[in-house]
Design a protein around this nucleic acid. Sequence first.
DNA 1: GATGTTGACTGAACCGGTTGAGTACGCACA
DNA 2: TGTGCGTACTCAACCGGTTCAGTCAACATC
Lengths: 336, 336
Amino acid sequence: MKRPTIADIARRAGVSKGAVSYALNGQPGVSEATRQRILAIAQEIGFNPNSAARALSGSTANAVGLALCRPARILGIEPFFMELISGVEAELSARSYALTLQVVADPEAEIAVYKRWWGERRVDGVFVCDLRIDDSRVPVLEELQLPAVVIGGPGHTGELACVWADDAAALGETLEYLVALGHRRIARVGGLPELLHTEIRSRAFADVCQRLGVEAITVPSDYTGEEGARATRRLLSSAQRPTAVLYDNDVMAIAGLAVAQEMGLAVPGDLSIVAWDDSALCQLTHPPLTALGRDIPAYGGHAARQLLAAIEGKKIGAYQHETAHLTPRGSTAPPR
Amino acid sequence: MKRPTIADIARRAGVSKGAVSYALNGQPGVSEATRQRILAIAQEIGFNPNSAARALSGSTANAVGLALCRPARILGIEPFFMELISGVEAELSARSYALTLQVVADPEAEIAVYKRWWGERRVDGVFVCDLRIDDSRVPVLEELQLPAVVIGGPGHTGELACVWADDAAALGETLEYLVALGHRRIARVGGLPELLHTEIRSRAFADVCQRLGVEAITVPSDYTGEEGARATRRLLSSAQRPTAVLYDNDVMAIAGLAVAQEMGLAVPGDLSIVAWDDSALCQLTHPPLTALGRDIPAYGGHAARQLLAAIEGKKIGAYQHETAHLTPRGSTAPPR
DNA sequence: GATGTTGACTGAACCGGTTGAGTACGCACA
DNA sequence: TGTGCGTACTCAACCGGTTCAGTCAACATC
């Protein structure tokens, strides 16, 4: 099946290729009557502009890239990315931009992908996830002048735009709630320590606990259920067992709940559990998990709008998304 | 920053654009010495061929598409797709093909996406997920002559290639195991009834149960935790309560486990639970779930290889992936 | 020494859009 | 009647690769 081109439309309309291009793109240079005639023909023969030809002359690929740097098992189990992607997508497809996805093994490979995408002109801009402290990807993107939006921050983003949420405030709200319930020994199972937002949360956790005068224990982990379970086992085996644990993602929280049950501790009677990121998973457990939720698709949507603006050459900065809010469910209660 | 083109390489090497193209693509027409010189220059200046130019003249986009038709919340929570994607990716990036992702609302929108991609020449082929009975996407793809690989089947794939697994055999193995444990009333919480693989499983479930002489109850559901929980509540409230339940995905199985606990039933003492799809989630619960697992990234990898072969014009058919195998864990035991 | 033959390479067309320069025409105005 | 101007176009170059038809020199063959 032959794909129609603007030359086909031009022939049928009895005009030149240029006129067709002007008509289809809403540019001046054709009369309204001719424009309508051309649009009607395009519609009739099901014309779609060849994206390669467009990219080649217009120098815009009409695509953006997302490189994900997590192993398959973790990537699959974390609902965060898919929710983010679907939010991003909604915004992109409305402007008929494509999303190019690549799974990479490490930050170096990710940098190589950015360089390749840039050289191939395959994408007009990229999203950067899992921002690290003094992230090596940032200077590379700045040098390439590839429009980019960091999902995370603030800080350490150099000149790049970012979309962020105030995790410190969310943490404060959560700890105040736990303290109000009567908890005085609160632990936190953190995410990957090298990630910036883990650092931000760790600092905020320590600060807020000090302000509230409660004991703070943070155990580093890596977002996997296995590590979350191990960390929980360690915490619950200590002499001064915490009465509440806050997990940096929902997967670890679910693993922690299972460990508590396995060790014969009642949740929430003996142990309260709070999950950061409120995916549907949190409502599947018994008891359902109290969680710190936010609208992740909307977060992705904002990021997409920022990136599209950056591609258009607009000067954009940091966008603050709504702070995560606590949804109390059955996994939190006053300690016995 | 200016991107280097083959013209730049040609100038520096003192040859024509054509010679550079031959050299870079391993085509005959240049001497080995010249080829090495050109490759060295390309390496040195960090050359990457402009993908649009390549697509325009070579008429291959070097990209494949995947349209996902599930709402954000379900998409995020199902580890299946992300695992599939990472397997697909590994294969694609080795051949420097890009993956273009699009989230769509319904099959009609998905068809529109395929038509657009075809018209725009944005992708060279597509993956088709969630095959339905008499799927309307199949004839469209056949007519467009867009290379495609169906993730699922067999049957109802028309002329399209597919990658499938023998779910009926896996189901047989599972039921024989449950019957051997002593179960005689076994229920199944199925996936979306309109999907072909749900139908295949439902038929196999009925057949095998009849063969083994056990009572079979299938309750349709939709893969979400909410529906899985509701179906479980209905099953466990009935007078003739089943002693074992098989769930069509892990998310529903986890929800089912929570419902059993909420209703005061011991798992596996009062109720055995088996999950189809063994993601890391199954090991996070207490007790950990007995599950029917398979290597989903490998499944995706096979699909990618099939699609690339189809794009190269090879005649390909159905590829049968390994049958899912049962991993017994703590959620199954003889009934009391 | 004339005649292929082969290998190494050049030049130009081509893919399908976009865009700036050029042109033809109608109309207003001095 | 000539000039100026805006509108509605056409024409051709261009983006950066790929590819086909030549060209030209070196070498083998009779």
